[in-house]
Design a protein around this nucleic acid. Sequence first.
DNA 1: CTTATATTCAAGAACTCTCTTGAATGAACG
DNA 2: CGTTCATTCAAGAGAGTTCTTGAATATAAG
Lengths: 219, 219
Amino acid sequence: MALGAKLDLFAAFADIARGLGNAHRLDLLEHLAQGEKSVEALAAKTGLTFANTSQHLQALRRVGLVIGERRGKQVVYRLSGDDVLDLMAALRAVGERHADAVQTVVSDYFEARDALEAVPFATLEQRMGDGLVTLIDVRPADEFVAAHVPGARNIPLAELRARLDEIPPGAEVIAYCRGPWCVLAFEAVALLREAGRDARRLDGGLPEWRRAGLPVEVA
Amino acid sequence: MALGAKLDLFAAFADIARGLGNAHRLDLLEHLAQGEKSVEALAAKTGLTFANTSQHLQALRRVGLVIGERRGKQVVYRLSGDDVLDLMAALRAVGERHADAVQTVVSDYFEARDALEAVPFATLEQRMGDGLVTLIDVRPADEFVAAHVPGARNIPLAELRARLDEIPPGAEVIAYCRGPWCVLAFEAVALLREAGRDARRLDGGLPEWRRAGLPVEVA
DNA sequence: CTTATATTCAAGAACTCTCTTGAATGAACG
DNA sequence: CGTTCATTCAAGAGAGTTCTTGAATATAAG
């Protein structure tokens, strides 16, 4: 019984781990970390079919990682708690350490990343105060509207090249996006450097900012 | 490419999550959190067959959660890093929150647990200093020998009833075992209370103690 | 060199997961 | 109250996981 109960307990935890055990579901979780979203919105963001998105969301809900709530005609999903962000961060920590050793694609990714040193939140706050820095949020506009770092200007990555003139030439540019797994800010920094700007990435995206207890701005 | 690379990255993280996605593998990880062990030792502790234990360990090694090293005739496995403990703790945090809602067995487990308030590490250290407390390690002797909290006395759960007289009657008893998922200390506390002792559980087992940077004693 | 010991590999049966397709539900709106 | 829209359910093909069994390695010891 003690042994059986223990395995039952482990089985429950294993179910949660299996909930995270699919690339598309991690993608969905990252999008949900930006804020609550309908199934339709998630299907559009991830490129999955409607039914498939729904099934993945139900898998996540079954193990308690997300909560789905009917709101009129739509069902809106959100992360079930901040500990889900912590769990994803812990997974990332193990993954980044292991990446070098095994996965080439991934280690390329992280090598590129190491080359661009990230700016900690505290440093950003300080420089924002001094007015020495332009902070840009390179996520799509709808995610910016839902929540963003105070003082950030929204220039989605897709529009960045065309809107370079909106960024004051002298100041340092700091870019952020959805979080540590998100490529948008990396690409933004690469593009900005190509254009001769002094650009760096913020060390963490909006979910990490919020998780750190820092204020966010809406609309 | 950006999208493909991102999914490759997520797939790598998902592989790690799937590594945790099996009750037996979580069991193996908990045992490895006590210290490195051979395949044979793990098979004995978990009750799995030899070949099955080996296969699960290889699954864990493939995703970088454990490291296996040939040492003479044996292959000795250990956790690949402290971040694996953090990952397990994060998984537990989500699981405990979700437990009430879904798994009855598990919620029973956690209810029983809530009834016995756990003693934080800091409190233990203070009371140990005052000599007001008897600390017992209820894990099997081999795990105690590998590492234990300084000042603890080893009385494996199986022997506890027979060795009650080794515990000074007046003082409070604090028991610990393998960690938050381990039932040994729960059962020890229940048994001690039945015997009229003032017993409580330590809030965390040996892996958590070590992870907190506190000193351990060997042999 | 042979044997014993510890571990891994290989193959197969039973089961689970994933994605697709098309039908079914549930709420809102005319 | 019938239609529309967003979502879920159901069934099935294909792939992956798990456990068992027995054979294959690799090291150590005689």
